[in-house]
Write a protein that binds this DNA or RNA. Structure first.
Lengths: 84, 84
DNA sequence: ATGGTTGTTCAATATTCATAGAACTATCAT
DNA sequence: ATGATAGTTCTATGAATATTGAACAACCAT
């Protein structure tokens, strides 16, 4: 459920696409650059994605790096990422 | 997107589970028996599911029979139904 | 024709979710 | 220490969704 709610939003879907396309981790700022409307908005969406288990977050200095949590996709939405 | 919005709700997810478990078509009343809170509410959720392409509807007399639209699941969420 | 099912539509309300700005923490660079 | 960067949290507000009941339409059975 949390997964579907997390994916039921254009902004978050955009972030997922960015992360999938990049094949690497990105900073929150990077990953949300073209989707997000303010930094508090960004924070909100990244939290939603994290709580749904769709992304992993690693902190380095001030910066947080995010990447797709492949395990979750494989487990609950196997094959989905390839339909993006 | 419409697909995720459609799945991002407990009531509709319940309906999907019922349909998946039954392996056959069911009437709307049957499929929603344990999830839905009123008949207008049922109608609303079935419409949402239909518009997302997740179910097929067949009318026979007063009764509408609903079933999963496997094509949509296979195309956009391959493998998902088996995780239910 | 009347009454009983099955489902739809409409309008009102309630609930949930998304957005914005301001104040804040933490880290780095000078 | 100061300023800059990266992100969080809070409160308020707006937008989108869900729920309800009432009135309705379609179909069947008698």
């Amino acid at each position: 459920m949390k997964i579907f709610k997390a994916l039921a939003d254009d902004t978050r879907l955009g972030i997922i696409k960015n992360l999938y396309a990049s094949k690497e981790e990105m900073s929150c700022t990077e990953a949300g650059a073209d989707c997000v409307s303010s930094k508090s908005n960004a924070s909100y969406h990244f939290r939603t994605l994290r709580e749904a288990g769709l992304i992993k977050v690693r902190k380095e200095a001030q910066t947080k790096f995010v990447s797709l949590n492949k395990e979750t996709f494989d487990r609950f939405l196997p094959g989905f990422l390839d339909t993006l």
